[in-house]
Design a protein around this nucleic acid. Structure first.
Lengths: 339, 339
DNA sequence: TTGAAAGCGCTAACAC
DNA sequence: GTGTTAGCGCTTTCAA
């Protein structure tokens, strides 16, 4: 019994296209990959048969045979963050046209989850890996180091990269913001941020921030942490909490723009004198801020550039240094006074 | 391309673990997959050898041999939208523990891009596909229909699903919002939305909306479209444009909450009498709204539930109907007057 | 320009 | 409980 072309019960193989077109499997494969010389006539026959059947090549078999996988693993802590989607945009843009495809995995800021995501990804033998952060479990570290593919750790450069690092110095960013705040004459500064024990970058920013405050003879007058929920709302609540507990506070430093924006809305609602009586600053430079009634001071995290550079490294652009540092720009907005 | 510093010169195979542990490849495979009965002693030997070597299984070979791939393709139009990350959360949550892994692809609202993403994904022979929307290119449609795996089209149910559909009726959502607005006594209603020609769901909402207005003897007094940029800022600008062009407008219906929030902030800045002189409504029920000074009327798009249900279908939960409809809840917030 | 043979690294299906 | 054999669907290599 011969199989009718309409047999829905079997996924098509090269052999089906070969039989339908009367061309050898090998030549069909060549046509479909645009590899090697094939006569125009043969090519036409193959393409027609392939299209008519609705053939979709099996990349699993192809990858196994060729030992080549056009996938790039990207491991990020979260998607609902507004910052990682932009990194993804930079990566996708740059990978476009190289034949490489990003595959995203999310770790939810959990080292063990990150390890298992990395393990899963590596088991598909990708052409490269892009991973947020420099902190990983020992096992993840070993796997990555042994993978034999380019590894790019992104967002952060304060630490030792496995292979390449592309990002900004969060410690430096924290210091720089502290310098600007102190220079503007604020003295009773509070920090408001995520509780996340594994947001190493926020932690480093705070460290740099406090270091500079310390050099100016200052310490934080208050600090408030949160986890989960609507960041905007949390920003309001935290701000209310800090200002009622420590009313003398004259500056609110937030670990991200979303809670900063919530805090700003709260201050405006309360008709507080921003930026004279009280100043605010966030971090990231999210475009959301552009629509607010008043512009929150922030620092751009260079997300797009980081994504682009990481993708370039993976796709083989020659690189001279293991570490690519970007310099975030401090945007004063309307919430730090100038004196 | 540089390689991480390491002693290895070849990626490890089962054979390496087999040799290192003195156990046959087959048994090593069994241990590593927790399949079949293996003595505790053998299992221990294998695990130790595997760990010591840092072996990462090759899923490509495994998938080819077993004809089983634990991947679920998820195709969405955008990541920077706030709505799709939440769908992803529902999917991931539900897939957790089933052994299935979501793989995300982004189409940027471009049908051709969607087609190529679908093609790429299918070529990895995933166990199922979840795709936003019911509108696809003919080629994509054929590929999906022929793939021989569960296909779930999500977000929308106004149309014919290839296999399963899980979502809400956007046409109905538009009608329902129009009914509420008309019932509240608003009469000079304007629409503000995305320009995107391929946002079929926004289009269907508008259709349903206008249909109901029509039945009440009303037509839109103005409409304004945008594309790109900060949604919050665009919302402000568009609102300013509409109100200066058509000052008699008494209701602003936005195609999404972000531009709606921008519009709301604008109205508050201008001290317009919301919701008495002018009402506003958006769509999606994004949590962002919780932090605003005043709560925008909206409709929840049931994103989490949709993601969960889609993942359940893919993972084999018995389903009786091809279409799962969810019912979005209308939230009046503070921007539709009650009379 | 085309085709045939030999795997890629793993697992299904059986033997033992 | 463990090992052996024969592919999975493609591409590499080499011959024609």
């Amino acid at each position: 019994m011969t199989k009718p072309a309409s047999d829905q019960n079997h996924t098509l193989t090269l052999r089906d296209v070969s039989e339908a077109s009367g061309v050898s499997e090998m030549t069909v494969s060549r046509v479909l990959r645009n590899r090697g010389d094939v006569s125009a006539a043969t090519r036409a026959k193959v393409l027609e048969a392939s299209r008519a059947l609705g053939y979709v090549p099996n990349k699993i078999a192809g990858a196994l045979a060729s030992q080549r996988v056009n996938l790039v693993g990207v491991v990020i802590p979260s998607l609902s963050n507004m910052v990682f989607p932009e990194v993804m945009t930079g990566i996708s843009e740059t990978l476009e046209g190289t034949g490489l495809q990003p595959v995203v995995g999310v770790s939810n800021y959990l080292p063990d989850k990150e390890e298992s995501v990395i393990y899963e990804m590596l088991s598909w033998r990708p052409s490269g890996m892009i991973i947020a952060g420099l902190e990983h479990t020992p096992a993840a570290h070993v796997m990555l180091a042994r993978a034999g593919i380019p590894i790019v750790e992104i967002m952060d450069i304060d630490g030792d990269p496995i292979d390449h690092a592309v990002g900004i110095s969060h410690r430096r960013a924290g210091r720089q913001m502290a310098e600007a705040i102190v220079a503007a004459g604020y003295r009773r500064i509070a920090f408001l941020g995520t509780q996340m024990p594994n947001d190493f970058r926020a932690k480093k920013r705070l460290e740099g921030f406090e270091e500079t405050l310390g050099r100016a003879g200052l310490t934080l007058v208050d600090r408030e942490f949160y986890s989960g929920g609507s960041a905007l709302l949390k920003g309001r609540e935290m701000t209310a909490a800090v200002l009622s507990r420590t009313p003398e506070t004259d500056f609110l430093y937030y670990s991200n723009d979303m809670i900063g924006a919530g805090g700003l809305l709260y201050c405006l609602d309360e008709s507080l004198d921003v930026p004279n009586k009280i100043g605010l600053a966030g971090f990231n430079g999210v475009e959301l801020l552009d629509g607010l009634p008043c512009k929150l001071a922030t620092m751009d995290a260079c997300r797009l550039e980081i994504g682009r550079r990481a993708a370039e490294i993976i796709s083989g652009t020659p690189v001279t240094t293991k570490v690519s540092e970007f310099t975030p720009k401090l945007q004063f907005g309307d919430t730090i006074r100038t004196r």
